[in-house]
């Protein structure tokens, strides 16, 4: 058992290395003097200074973070409640609903973008944050739903029954018993939603307006002129900030042990 654990730890470490290798390159190039981001020339900090002059870029990061947060919040509610309801109750055409929920995962982004754009025109929804969030939730919530369903499968019915016997309503049982039980899946789903939304390019192009440019749109627009290291610099700042945030939250939690019943939200 112990040996197995060591092997698993080594495997995990190797996988982390794989995941972080390109990130190391990305961070390295944020200090490169060449503006073409391809060949190493020399060390500089000028790209970090350039972030503060680049109001458009910072604004697009703000937009992206806002959209990803709202998208994640809605996706988590929709996906978790949906998974539970489809699990708990017999709806006519349950399998049809299930299949339909998977469709946005499969439809190529460009088709989804164009068809949503046309749909928004039909319903007279002006393009902007709302249209972007709607389209993002549509492809994000299935990820939450699938993760939660995987957790629900094989759930001990006694768990919920017990809660019901304690006099709780189904909704109360859901909140007090199931949500804590589902929390690992909810967190996984939330992380996936946030990540997908943050980095989505094509659907966003079709559903965004001039005032709601996101970071991926901004970055893609710059490919033609060469992805300059400012983009690496802003990525570096962002992930370092996140990493520090996560680690401090974790440390604080460990210090206050029992107080921390709330898992960190992305």
């Amino acid at each position: 058992m112990k040996r197995v654990n060591t092997m698993l730890a080594a495997w995990t470490a190797a996988t982390m290395l794989f995941l972080y290798l390109p990130i190391a390159i990305l961070i390295g190039f944020s200090f490169n003097t060449s503006r073409l981001n391809i060949v190493w020339q020399g060390f500089t900090l000028e790209w970090y200074a350039a972030i503060w002059r680049d109001a458009v870029l910072v604004k697009s990061l703000e937009n992206s973070l806002y959209i990803a947060s709202v998208t994640t919040a809605i996706s988590v509610v929709l996906g978790t409640a949906g998974a539970w309801l489809l699990y708990r109750y017999r709806f006519p055409g349950a399998r049809m609903w299930q299949t339909l929920i998977f469709v946005p995962m499969l439809v190529p982004e460009v088709i989804m973008g164009v068809s949503l754009l046309i749909f928004f025109v039909v319903i007279h929804l002006e393009l902007g944050f709302t249209s972007i969030v709607i389209s993002h939730v549509t492809f994000c919530f299935p990820f939450v739903l699938v993760a939660v369903q995987a957790r629900l499968a094989g759930l001990d019915p006694a768990l919920e029954e017990a809660a019901m016997d304690l006099g709780a309503t189904p909704v109360g049982a859901f909140r007090r018993v199931l949500v804590p039980y589902l929390m690992p899946a909810i967190i996984s789903g939330a992380l996936m939603s946030f990540t997908l939304s943050l980095d989505e390019l094509i659907v966003t192009y079709f559903t965004a307006s001039a005032g709601t440019r996101t970071l991926p749109l901004e970055i893609f627009g710059r490919v033609k002129k060469g992805l300059d290291p400012t983009l690496n610099a802003i990525s570096t700042v962002f992930i370092l900030f996140t990493a520090v945030l996560v680690v401090t939250t974790e440390l604080l939690k460990r210090r206050g042990t029992s107080l921390a019943s709330e898992p960190p939200q992305p």
């Binding site: 990130i23 390019l201 991926p216 983009l231 990525s235 992930i239």
Partner: peptide, 9 residues
Amino acid sequence: IPFWTSFLI
């Protein structure tokens, strides 16, 4: 976290 950087970069 690695995936909170830009896909292109």
